[in-house]
Design a protein around this nucleic acid. Structure first.
Lengths: 186, 186
DNA sequence: CTGAACATGTAAAAGGTTACATGATTTT
DNA sequence: AAAATCATGTAACCTTTTACATGTTCAG
């Protein structure tokens, strides 16, 4: 069981899906911080099924062309157990930030480009989060009945908060560079 | 040449170091978003040397027990070329956020623990960035001569900004949970 | 003189991506 | 009829981590 396997299991706790739909759902909602490729997806589905965590939802109603998977009781318990376990510390692989760190000798143009790249990405992340994650306006008029959407709302809020912080940093960084390199009042 | 190789090359552009010192420097300054293990470090150093990007700094002044590497001219050019290339989009592997997404059925206690875990990590990142990255107070009284420290300052500012955003999100997330689960005025 | 830190490496395994391979169904 | 999308999988490769293996130097 790799972390990706757990992620797949978690998504099946929302609703039954086939492999293709799963991959789409994962990419749409947590794509920026947890990608799942087909090369991992299908083997992991197989493994989850072998462990009895998931099972075909419909008895081959489609003729076997596709398999819609659902979470089993065992799977739900296993998922709860995983959630109870402390999470691995988040690891980033942020090449852009590493490049920025070495950009002193490369000059302000390179620095500005590296920052602009981040700005574009951050904007895309923010837009995507607001567009695709359900329950976008959760807290306004929230009631007990909307309970099931709270986690998704918190995650979406996180993505937006991080993107906003990144954008603010981009502005600040550019201002610092401008002041230093072509500023007349810095 | 893996991205890790370039990172090592970049660090050698600051000053000559041996493998052990390199690894320490990397962990200290960019450890949260770019780890380098010995299992990669030494093979990459060997490869960098084969490419002529680095060379032993001192002619075995130590008797050969350790090798202090320095950046060569060729290496500096290669590094500049790498910086001119667009960076790979940052990828995160954030298990905690994935867990949070599935925590609706697990209840508020699990949610709060997941948030607390993030708070602890964010605080540690922030403290570490302020402690260890040089040039912490760069913009105040900055002059042209401090130019070489600007990139490091920007990166440090990024770490701090992200940590602060994370901490603010933690507060907000907890407040949302409190309002919803045990709030009397929510 | 003993333990911590310094220093360098290798082998195996884990985890993941990419490219390949195939075919059905739906849309244009 | 062609093109796009749906759908499932495998094989090879890449990157990285972990565990192992070894020896030196310095501080208490």
């Amino acid at each position: 069981m790799t972390p990706t396997g757990w992620t797949v299991l978690g998504f099946l706790s929302f609703q039954p899906r086939n492999g293709y739909q799963l991959r789409q759902a994962v990419q749409r909602s947590v794509g920026h911080y947890w990608g799942v490729s087909y090369g991992q997806l299908y083997p992991q589905l197989k493994l989850l099924a072998e462990n009895g965590f998931i099972a075909p939802a419909e008895p081959e109603g489609d003729g076997g062309r596709q398999t819609v998977w659902r979470l089993t009781e065992t799977g739900a318990e296993a998922l709860a157990g995983w959630l109870a376990t402390p999470a691995e510390p988040a690891q980033r692989r942020d090449e852009g930030l590493v490049k920025l760190l070495f950009s002193d000798h490369a000059g302000p143009a390179v620095m500005r480009r590296l920052i602009e790249e981040r700005r574009v990405e951050a904007r895309a992340r923010r837009t995507r989060a607001e567009e695709t994650i359900p329950g976008a306006h959760w807290p306004e008029g929230a009631e007990k009945s909307t309970e099931t959407a709270m986690a998704a709302w918190l995650v979406r809020a996180h993505t937006v908060a991080m993107a906003d912080a990144e954008l603010a940093w981009c502005d600040q960084a550019e201002a610092t560079i401008a002041e230093h390199f072509d500023g007349q009042d810095g």
